Simulated assay, not measured.
Amino acid sequence: MLKVWHTIWKKPKTKILISLLALGTIFLTMSAFVQPNISDNANLLDRQTRQLIQEKNNRYWQTKEQPQIAVITVKRLNKLTPRKLNATKRICYIVVGAKGKKRNVQIFSSKDLHGAFTADTRMNILRAAANDLRSPQKATFNKGLRLVFRACATKIDQQYQYAFDKYDLTNEEQDRISHPHRVALPLALALAVIVMALIYFLGRVRKQKND
């Protein structure tokens, strides 16, 4: 038996085949620990954010279209457009530029998702999370980033008519992003009432002094 194996091993083609199988095994083993949707070069993402990204994208892999949401962080504030963006399909990119305490978060999408991610949509999503995204605290920043991710996931789910799950936005969150002026209107009215009351009060005080 040993002689037979030794004879087989001496054949060049057999050596090449076994070597390729070994390399393939190593690649598959390493791939199990790779997170293709996460590239955290700026070391900004916490465990909860990473888990959200992976779990939602894993669900997408089970669909026919297999869309994806990639989150990338880089150590610069400009030139954030992903490479080969125009060559991709069914993918949304959330790119975070970081330099010191400054952050620049941008949303990009492949051409087939431009209808879901219009300029207004992207602006409204980022505006809704702006306060958290500006925070120098890692936990607060990640809270805002998770809102951005969930908003992007909701848009993709709407685009492909997927059933909503726990990773999507609530109805209230969707309304706050889709209609930012509607949310701001009550605050503006309240402020106007306060200003008018203050003007009235100051007018009464001035009149009493004149009397």
Rank of each mutant, 00 (worst) to 15 (best):
Q208D: 11
V205A: 12
I177A: 09
R206E: 14
G97P: 09
T88K: 07
R122W: 07
R146A: 07
P36T: 05
K101Q: 13
M123H: 11
M1H: 04
D168R: 00
K79D: 15
T63F: 05
N86K: 10
K207R: 12
R176A: 13
A139K: 13
I199K: 00
R47N: 14
E55G: 00
T140C: 08
G115S: 07
S135C: 01
A151V: 07
F117G: 01
M196E: 06
T49K: 00
P180M: 06
V4W: 11
K75G: 05
H114Y: 06
K102H: 06
V105I: 13
Q35C: 01
R47D: 14
A184E: 13
Q174I: 08
I177C: 08
F201Q: 04
D157C: 11
L187E: 11
R150K: 15
H179V: 02
W5T: 01
K207P: 06
M123Q: 13
I72T: 15
L80T: 07
D120T: 15
F201T: 06
A42I: 08
D46M: 10
I18L: 14
M123I: 02
I125M: 12
V195E: 07
Y167A: 15
N78M: 01
I8E: 09
R182T: 06
D46Y: 08
R127A: 13
T118K: 11
K13M: 10
L202E: 09
N37K: 00
F117L: 05
G115W: 03
F201H: 08
Q137A: 04
I18P: 00
Y60H: 02
L133C: 11
V148C: 10
Y200F: 07
R182S: 05
V183M: 09
D157S: 14
V105H: 10
R47L: 13
L185T: 09
A197T: 00
L85P: 01
Q106F: 06
T7E: 14
I91C: 04
Q48N: 13
E65N: 03
E65Y: 02
E55K: 12
F108A: 05
S19I: 14
R47I: 14
V105G: 04
F141A: 09
T121Y: 10
I94D: 06
F141T: 09
A129P: 05
L191E: 11
R83M: 07
T118E: 08
L198W: 12
K11D: 10
T140L: 11
R146F: 02
N171I: 12
P186V: 10
Q62E: 14
S31D: 15
L20S: 12
D40W: 04
K101G: 05
H6T: 13
E172P: 02
F201S: 07
N86P: 01
E55F: 01
N57W: 05
D40G: 01
L113A: 01
Q51V: 07
W9I: 05
F149L: 12
R206Y: 14
R127C: 00
I38E: 03
M1D: 02
Q137C: 01
